[in-house]
Amino acid sequence: MLAAPLAPAATFAQGWAAERYQVEDRKSGYLYLGDQTQALQDDDFLNHAFFAVERGAELWSAVDGAAGVSCASCHGDAAESMRGVTARLPRYDSERDGIINLELLINRERERKLKAEPYAYESEDLLALTAFLAFQSRGIPSEVEIGGAAAPFFEKGREHYFPRRGQLDLSCTQCHDERDGMMLRGDRMSQGQTNGFPFYRLSWHSMGSTHRMFAWCNNAMRAEPYAPASEEYLNLELYVAWRGRGLPIEAPAVRR
C-alpha cells in the first residue's frame, strides 16, 4: 500500500457500528484486524475483493454454454433475486443427500441451466461469481438450517471441529475458542467465523474460499487437508456457519 487512509476510529466496514460485528459472544474476524486492514475492508473502492465482485457481475450476465443463456436471463437483477441466499447457505440438498454450498450451487446451475462446464473449485471465475452472489447478502444475518435432514451432517461437522488431529495434535476449538484473541506468530487468532467468505487474504495475494481456509488451518495443525468440496469440508462448513449464527454476512471481507 502506498497511501491507504487510516480508518477514523468511529467508522466501520460498510458504515456499520462496532456492535454489528458481534452477536452475543460470537465475533467476526473483522474485530481482530489491525486498523489498516479494517480500512481496506471499510472502503469498497480499496477492498481488493471488489475486483472479484466486478468480474462476478460480468459473469452473471455473460451468455455461456449450449443453452445460450446467462444467469441473469432467468434471475434478472441479482440484488433482488439473490438477496439473502448466501445467508442461508450451506444447506441440506435432497438430490445430493448431503450438504450443498454456494460454490456447488453455482456449478450445478451452470451445468443444468446454462449447459456449460462447471468451474474448477477455487478458480478465479468461481471465486468471482461466489463473491458477487455473497455480496448480495451483505448485512443479512447468517441463519443456517441444522434440523431435519441436515441434522446428521451437522453432527458430522461438529465431530470434525472438536477432536485433535495432525502431528501437532490440535483441534479447531483449541485455537479458535480456547485461544481466541491470542497471537499465533504474526496472526491474531479469531474465532474462525465464515461470514466474510469468499475473502481477499493479503498473505495469499488472492481471493480464497472457505474450503481453502479450512485446508490452510488443517496444514497449520500439520494434518492432511481434505479436498475442496469434500463431504468433510461441506459438513464442517455447515457446523462453522451455525457457530457464527446471527453474524451479518460481510462478504467480501479482507483478512491478513
Binding site: 500500500m1 502506498l2 497511501a3 491507504a4 487512509p5 480499496l46 475486483f51 495475494h205
Partner: peptide
C-alpha cells in the same frame, strides 16, 4: 516491493 494491487491517492 510495492504490494500487489497498488493503490495511490493524490
Amino acid at each position: 516491493a510495492i504490494s500487489a494491487n497498488p493503490y495511490i491517492s493524490f
